[in-house]
Each structure stands twice: as C-alpha cells, then as structure tokens.
Simulated scan of single mutants.
Amino acid sequence: MLGRALGLLRAFTEDDDPLTPLELGRRAGLARSTAHRLVAELVALGMLDRLPDGTVTLGSGLWELGELAPLSLRMRERALPHLQTLYEATGENVHLAVLAGTDALYVARVTGTSSIPTVTRMGGRLPLHTTGVGRALLAGRDEEWLARYFLIPRERETTFSLTEEAPLRAEIERTRSRGYATTRQEMTLGNVSIAAALPVVAGLPPAALGVVTHIGRADEGRIAPLVVRTAAAIGAALAAH
C-alpha cells in the first residue's frame, strides 16, 4: 500500500496543474476505487491538498517533511550564504546539486534578473554528462562506478552534447587535473557551465557547485577560481557542523 501511495505522489510533474484523483490513478496504474481511497487518506495526512473543485495538489505537509531532510537543514541552509556571495561576484546563475543515482539533483540555486535562463529548478534532475555539476560529480566517482555508468545509454540534449564514453572520459580526466568541470552548450544552446565538486562530507551525498552563464560572457579564467574557492568554503562549513 505504501508503494501505491508513493506512486500517486510521484505521478505529479513540474508541468502539472492540479489533477483529479482519476488522472492520478491512471498515471500510477491504479484502479479508480483504489486511487480515490488513497487520495482521501493522503489528503487527511496532509500529503495532498484538495481544492474546492475536487482536484488535488501536492500538500503542504509533504513540503514540511521535505524541509526536515539533511539536504535542506544541513546542506542547503549552510550553503546559501556562499551561493549568494558567488552570485554577487558573478551576476550569474549559481547552482548546488547532489548525486542522485545517475542524475544531478538540484537542491539550491541563486539567480537574478540579469542571469541567463536555464532549465534547472530546485528539486529537478538533469543528466550528469551534459551539465557542469554533473561532470564534476562524475570526476569524483571511482572506476567501478564509472564502468557501470557507461553501460547506460546517454541522450544527446543538443548537437554539442558529449555522449560517447571516450570523449566523456577525457573530460573527466581534464576535470580531475584542473579541479573544475566545464560544459559548453551541452544542455542548453548558448549556455556555458563551470562547476567544482565539494569536499566529501560524512552523512551527505556527493555534491557539486556550478555557475551557468552565456557563452558570450563566459570568462572561465575569472569564474573558475571563484567556483573552486566557494565549493571549498561550503565543504568547510558543512564539515564544521
């Protein structure tokens, strides 16, 4: 039953308006009666909120629980002042992501009116091979992990995306040797990402910090040292607590 309830919750996507219990059940592969019963229970528990027209959304109780997770209390809250400082120094999108399976899960971001639009959002996932933070995370994996990773097909997000193992391994080695990763127009045309991994912190997943800017103003020589220093500062702040 717990798995079915979780299936209902995961049936929501970032593009959804409120959904009917019937639509939720259809997405989760549940019978109509089962979906209605579970929706009622989740509403009672605060995991779903019911609107006056009978549709439902993810509930405030679910958000409240999520804010108790270590990624919120330990990582995001202590990293945000450093992200803000990096944003003030660059004026560009600043992202913090963690390794989640074979994806980069975005847990914090700071952006502004002059920052270039990106496809990232807090709580969203993007591929490791086409994002700066993802490539920085790949550089921290050992050979056993990478061997399994390269068995998985990788999609080409743009014409510039690296998907084959050999060029990706070359980029991983380049990242390791210089201490930061870059991607150029591999996730979104016109965008460049410069990222660095955070030091490993006990009790938290591997994490990386990145700046995304327009290719026309991507001053790697200026931005990369700022990113590397900020990643180290966040790691020290996390370790201190």
Results as ranks from 00 to 15, higher is better:
Asp16Trp: 02
Pro81Ala: 09
Ala195Pro: 10
Ser161Asp: 14
Gly46Tyr: 00
Glu77Asn: 00
Glu41His: 03
Ala224Ser: 10
Ser177Glu: 14
Ala147His: 12
His129Trp: 13
His36Trp: 12
Leu22Val: 15
Thr85Gly: 07
Val192Pro: 10
Ser114Val: 08
Val200Phe: 13
Ala108Phe: 12
Trp63Val: 15
Asp53Met: 06
Trp63Ile: 13
Asp219Phe: 03
Leu204Ala: 09
Pro52Gly: 01
Ala197Thr: 11
Leu126Met: 04
Met1Pro: 06
Ala5Gln: 12
Arg4Asn: 15
Gly91Tyr: 06
Gly112Met: 03
Gly101Pro: 09
Leu65Pro: 10
Ala136Cys: 08
Ala35Lys: 00
Ser60Trp: 08
Ala97Asp: 09
Ala79Phe: 05
Val98Ser: 10
Gly61Leu: 04
Pro70Asp: 08
Gly124Met: 11
Ile215Glu: 15
Thr183Val: 15
Gly210Ala: 13
Thr188Ile: 07
Val39Glu: 05
Gly132Pro: 10
Thr182Glu: 15
Tyr149Pro: 03
Thr163Trp: 01
Ala224Tyr: 02
Gly210Met: 03
Thr230Asp: 06
Thr183Ser: 10
Leu189Lys: 08
Arg10Cys: 13
Leu138Thr: 01
Thr175Tyr: 04
Arg76Ser: 08
Gly112Val: 07
Arg141Phe: 04
His82Asp: 00
Leu73Arg: 14
Gly112Tyr: 01
Phe12Cys: 08
Glu88Gln: 10
Glu67Gln: 13
Arg26Gln: 14
Thr159Phe: 12
Tyr87Ile: 05
Ala44Thr: 13
Arg74His: 04
Arg229Ser: 15
Glu77Phe: 02
Ser115Tyr: 03
Gly54Gln: 01
Val201Asp: 08
Val201Pro: 02
Ala44Tyr: 03
Leu138His: 07
Ala239Leu: 07
Asn93Glu: 06
Val39Thr: 15
Ser60Phe: 09
Ala89Asp: 09
Arg32Ala: 07
Glu64Asn: 07
Ala207Pro: 14
Pro199Asp: 07
Val119Asn: 13
Ile234Phe: 02
Ala195Leu: 08
Asn191Ile: 15
Ser60Arg: 04
His129Ile: 11
Val107Thr: 09
Ala89Met: 05
Ala239Cys: 04
Thr120Glu: 01
Arg174Met: 05
Glu165Pro: 00
Ala35Pro: 01
Arg141Val: 03
Gly216Cys: 11
Pro153Arg: 00
Gly101Gln: 10
Glu143Val: 09
Arg4Pro: 02
Ala147Phe: 07
Leu146Asp: 10
Asp103Lys: 08
Leu105Lys: 02
Leu80Gln: 07
Gly235His: 07
Met47His: 11
Arg26Ala: 13
Ser177Cys: 06
Glu165Met: 05
Asp17Tyr: 01
Leu168Ile: 07
Thr163Glu: 12
Ala236Val: 08
Ala40Leu: 12
Val227Asn: 02
Tyr149Thr: 09
Thr120Asn: 03
Arg229Asp: 15
Ala108Leu: 06
